[in-house]
């Protein structure tokens, strides 16, 4: 009853070809030079005092997008947690600590990764970097710790992990709400505390993003070894 047999295989090919043609035409029709919002953004970033324009766009001008983006990440984590089959599955597969080589490597790498994550957040306001990059490294460190037996996989979904997962979003919401009491609008950071507020959010976000990535990994562990059907 597969639709492959019933449906001519050529049509998807034709459809994708059509997409290629139409999008290609649309791209070629563009003038070779255009500014977009580059100039406005650069001027705005100067006014806001954040040196890295992309960070200024992400956390200040379009900070609302980023707030919702954090929500997407946390939502996806919650979603994957809700789909997990057997919370204890991974624990059964990682019995005991890793061997001496991996153990030593982990003991060296994990603290280093945590420092790198902190650095990435710190430089985020002036150079490429920021909470996402830092969070990704932090999450990777967590995965390394779990796989080599230094952390318990069953932690995923526990109350304390939930708090870490949520704290970034909660802090972001708090900072977003704070200007409202001074008559400003959502996310309208006061000029004098803009930089410190953004750094504050970034640090907590890094923690939550790291926890998210770790939870996504842990929660998708298979119910049975090898992922085979029981």
């Amino acid at each position: 009853m597969g639709d492959r047999r019933r449906f001519p295989a050529l049509l998807p090919l034709l459809a994708s070809g059509g997409v290629l043609a139409f999008v290609g035409r649309a791209v070629l029709a563009l003038p070779p030079a255009a500014n977009g919002l580059a100039v406005e953004m650069r001027d705005g970033a100067k006014a806001s005092g954040i040196k890295n324009v992309v960070t200024a766009v992400l956390l200040d001008f379009r900070g609302y997008d980023t707030l919702l983006e954090i929500a997407v990440l946390m939502l996806a984590t919650v979603a994957v947690l809700s789909l997990r089959e057997d919370p204890a599955a991974l624990s059964r597969r990682i019995a005991g600590r890793a061997g001496p080589v991996l153990g030593a490597l982990t003991r060296t790498l994990a603290p280093l990764m945590i420092i790198v994550a902190g650095h990435l957040v710190w430089v985020g306001s002036s150079e490429p970097g920021g909470a996402f990059q830092g969070g990704a490294v932090l999450g990777a460190a967590g995965i390394l710790l779990v796989l080599s037996g230094y952390a318990q996989p069953a932690w995923a979904g526990q109350r304390i992990v939930r708090w870490v997962l949520t704290v970034g979003l909660l802090a972001f919401i708090g900072v977003a709400l704070y200007p409202m009491f001074g008559g400003g609008s959502l996310l309208q950071y006061p000029a004098e505390s803009r930089k410190s507020l953004i750094l504050f959010i970034e640090i907590l976000l890094t923690l939550s993003i790291g926890a998210s990535i770790l939870s996504l990994f842990l929660a998708s562990a298979s119910a049975t070894a090898g992922g085979e059907r029981p």
């Binding site: 001008f61 609302y64 609008s185 959502l186 950071y189």
Partner: peptide
């Protein structure tokens, strides 16, 4: 949002 206003902000 953020007090910037379009086209800079949202």
């Amino acid at each position: 949002v953020g007090g910037w206003g379009a086209p800079l902000g949202i």
